[in-house]
Simulated scan of single mutants.
Amino acid sequence: MASRKKIGAFTYTAKIMADRKTKQLCNRLRSHHIALIDHADVDEIAACALLDTGVRAVVNLSPYMTGQYPAEGARRLLDEGVHLFELAADLVESGLIDRLDGVFATIEDNQLKVCTAEGERLVMPLLAVTKEKIEAKWRDATDSLDVTLSRFIDNTLSYAGMEKDLFLKPLCPLALKTRIDDRHVVVVVRGKHYREDLQTLHAYIREYRPVLIGVDGGADALMQAGYLPDLIVGDMDSVSDKALMSGAEIVLHAFSDGRAPGRSRLDRLGLPYHLLPAPGTSEDVAMLLAFEKRAQLIVTIGTHTTMIDFLEKGRKGMASTLLVRTKIGTKLIDAKGVNQLYQPRWSWKLWGWCLAAMLMPIAAALVINPVARHAAQMLWREWRIWAF
Rank of each mutant, 00 (worst) to 15 (best):
R4I: 06
R4P: 08
K5H: 13
K5V: 10
G8R: 05
F10L: 14
F10C: 02
T13A: 04
D19A: 05
R20T: 05
C26R: 00
N27H: 14
R28Y: 11
H32M: 07
I37P: 01
V55Q: 01
M65V: 10
T66I: 09
A74L: 05
L77F: 04
H83V: 06
E93Q: 15
S94C: 09
G95H: 08
G102Y: 04
F104D: 13
D109K: 11
C115M: 11
T116K: 06
L122V: 03
I134W: 05
I134T: 10
K137D: 12
D140L: 14
T142L: 14
D146Q: 12
L149Y: 13
I153A: 10
M162S: 12
E163I: 03
K169V: 04
A175P: 10
T178F: 03
V188I: 11
Y194N: 09
Y194D: 04
R195S: 07
E196C: 01
R206L: 08
R206H: 12
R209G: 06
A219K: 00
A225N: 00
G226V: 00
I232D: 00
D241R: 04
M245C: 15
S246K: 02
G247L: 02
E249Y: 03
A254W: 00
A260E: 00
L266C: 05
L269Y: 05
P272E: 06
Y273V: 00
Y273N: 01
Y273H: 05
S282A: 14
M287L: 14
E292R: 03
K293I: 00
I298S: 03
V299A: 04
T300G: 08
T303G: 11
T303Q: 10
F310V: 01
K313C: 10
M318K: 15
T321F: 07
L322D: 09
R325I: 02
R325D: 06
K331C: 11
G337Q: 14
L341W: 13
S347I: 05
C354K: 15
M358G: 14
M358D: 09
M360C: 12
A363Q: 11
V371D: 13
A376L: 10
M378A: 14
W383Q: 11
R384K: 14
I385G: 02
W386E: 08
